[in-house]
C-alpha cells in the first residue's frame, strides 16, 4: 500500500517535472527568438514578421 503510494507519487512528480521542464525550455527559446539583445541581429526580420517588439 505504502509502496504503491510512493510509486504513484514518484510518477506524478516525474510528469510534473517534464511539464515544467518543457515550459521552461519553451520560454527560453521564445526569449532568444523574440527578446534577447544578443540575438537581435540574426532575429531581426523574424521578429518584425512575428510582431515581437523590435528596435
Amino acid at each position: 500500500m505504502q509502496n504503491t503510494t510512493l510509486r504513484h507519487a514518484a510518477r506524478v512528480d516525474a510528469g510534473l517535472v517534464s511539464i515544467v521542464g518543457a515550459a521552461a525550455l519553451g520560454l527560453t527559446l521564445v526569449f532568444f527568438a523574440g527578446f534577447a539583445n544578443v540575438t537581435h541581429d540574426v532575429a531581426h526580420d523574424s521578429r518584425h514578421a512575428i510582431a515581437f517588439p523590435c528596435h
Binding site: 521564445v30 527568438a33 540574426v42 532575429a43 531581426h44 526580420d45 523574424s46 514578421a49 512575428i50 515581437f52
Partner: peptide, 9 residues
Amino acid sequence: NTFMMTLVA
C-alpha cells in the same frame, strides 16, 4: 538567419 530564428520561435 530569419529561417533559423523563426524555427526557434
